[in-house]
Design a protein around this nucleic acid. Sequence first.
DNA 1: CTGAAAGCGCTTACAG
DNA 2: CTGAAAGCGCTTACAG
Lengths: 347, 347
Amino acid sequence: MSADPSEDAPGTSPVSGATQSDLARELGVSRTLVSLALRGRAGVSPAMRRRILETADRRGYRRNTMAAELAGRRRTSVGLHLLDARNEIYSTILHSVQEELAGRERRLVLAVDSAPEHPDPRAVDTLLEANVGVVISTAVIGSEADIAALTARVPLIAMFRRVPGVDSISSDDDVGARRAVEHLADLGHRRIAHLTGPLFSGHSDRRESYQRSMSAMGAPADVVEADGYSRDAGLSAARGLLERPPGHRPSAVFAHNDELALAIREAAADLGLSIPGDLSLVGYDNSRTAGLTGIDLTTVDVAAADLGRAAAAAALRRLEDPAAAVVDRRFAPHLVVRGSTGAPRES
Amino acid sequence: MSADPSEDAPGTSPVSGATQSDLARELGVSRTLVSLALRGRAGVSPAMRRRILETADRRGYRRNTMAAELAGRRRTSVGLHLLDARNEIYSTILHSVQEELAGRERRLVLAVDSAPEHPDPRAVDTLLEANVGVVISTAVIGSEADIAALTARVPLIAMFRRVPGVDSISSDDDVGARRAVEHLADLGHRRIAHLTGPLFSGHSDRRESYQRSMSAMGAPADVVEADGYSRDAGLSAARGLLERPPGHRPSAVFAHNDELALAIREAAADLGLSIPGDLSLVGYDNSRTAGLTGIDLTTVDVAAADLGRAAAAAALRRLEDPAAAVVDRRFAPHLVVRGSTGAPRES
DNA sequence: CTGAAAGCGCTTACAG
DNA sequence: CTGAAAGCGCTTACAG
């Protein structure tokens, strides 16, 4: 895995452009001097510095960061591991991470899982091979031993999961899911189903919190598992749930995320069920879509942009000081009540 | 610009992990042999190859792609320049590009503009410094001379804009905008406004096509320019448009993209205007949001996923053969009629 | 089948 | 203030 023998892609592009050596040659000075001047380091006379910068500009010199990092024995770029680019929560995180990085001379190298339902450890390998200095992962999977092996190679910022000894930026799913269920219970619902996706290690907090909340109110838990976490993946499970025989259909559904909630919404529309008349619905994430007129989805706000910013800040901090104290920021989610929830019809 | 003297970020992470030299030393062979074996090249006995791969695995060897590219005088990674990660069209493109690249040993380096309304040439600089072998840009800006200067450094795949001599993956905006206007005209609308964003070079096709279509039907063009292309940026312009005194408000709006159409929708809801009763609305992009029950937006489908796939394919092709014939793929958009358009009230 | 040498573009000590 | 040398991790000719 680490050394793929079938590699060696034929496709390559020839390298081009002026180098520091070219500039040094043109000016008749040493490469060292050019390097120093370009980086604004001490040890170059003002006049010389000006000449060098002017020449660099004229020649359209662009520094080869990869070579610089190799020579400098350092790594400055940030790797971001995303589960699904099309899910608004991840694109929001991408956006806020990028904003924090902008203007800080940090490159962003991306690894996106192609099958979000089954996160691939290889995705992070890409980042390691790209020699990033820190990895922000929105889906830290595997055992704590796996994670320890990873962090031995590169500092990790874990999002949405708390990992002991690792910088963690999370949202309290336990609280979020409880608020969702309690809100439905307060409205009078007892038959509350939970639509979620495949279970993978470290990502069961919402489900477990749902189960605990249900048992606390003495109601049976009803977990339905879709093939994934996207709207498309959730559609057939959603349909199955809503097509249950009369009396077995829940009066409310709490979905693991807004995408799955939207799947429920579409399925409900197909079956002629009205929301919240026939079915109350709670999502999770508070995506911008959830707040749209006509969607009006009750959901749990996790402040995705804040999470992204915090993760980027943690990454920059870790890059600057590998020995800094471990960060464990846990954000409190809050319920945003909109029009998709109401009292059950027959109660 | 090219040589920023204020650079030299303090934050760095020390490099770590086994190298080919480490493996060679452990096995008592040359570095060359290790390199050959790791890449599956000829010239290594099967037994030796096996030993080397086994050792690499055991030591958790991870190849340093940056060093490999530097030494091999080639570039294999793909740079993607996105205008706005939160706009669904770009996240869809990101997703499809990444899918095409997955499993092909291609890294994706991302540059996202922080202010999409004013694309920053520096964003692409980041990609150049990351030594990417090809740049896919969703917003090629500047004059053709600027573009020529860029393509002298790195092959470019231009999206959404046709650039002579440059691989271009575009959608025919002229046709798309005409279809939108004609659809509204067919419904009986004459007062059709166009909500767009700031003008920048190479991106005025929809606007111009709208203007031509309006003048073809003998109606006055009514272009309203928002501060940007995002929903938030469009909100105040949308409000201004809909708050016009009676008789001056358009009966239909054709928006530059779905984001701006959603801004119109929100503004209309705030003002108590119904869609399509009081106002017909056409977007552009056919984002997944547009098709949602409750949104039901008539829009122009540009097949964003296809565009992304085509761009990725063009990038891979260009990487493999710098001398390949220039690609100019132009997709035909089509109108998707949904519930946001209808006959004008008083007609 | 295997190895010694040169070099990619850059930076970091170390000498002047 | 300036330069010659060594080296980052790797690959590519070139010799055996």
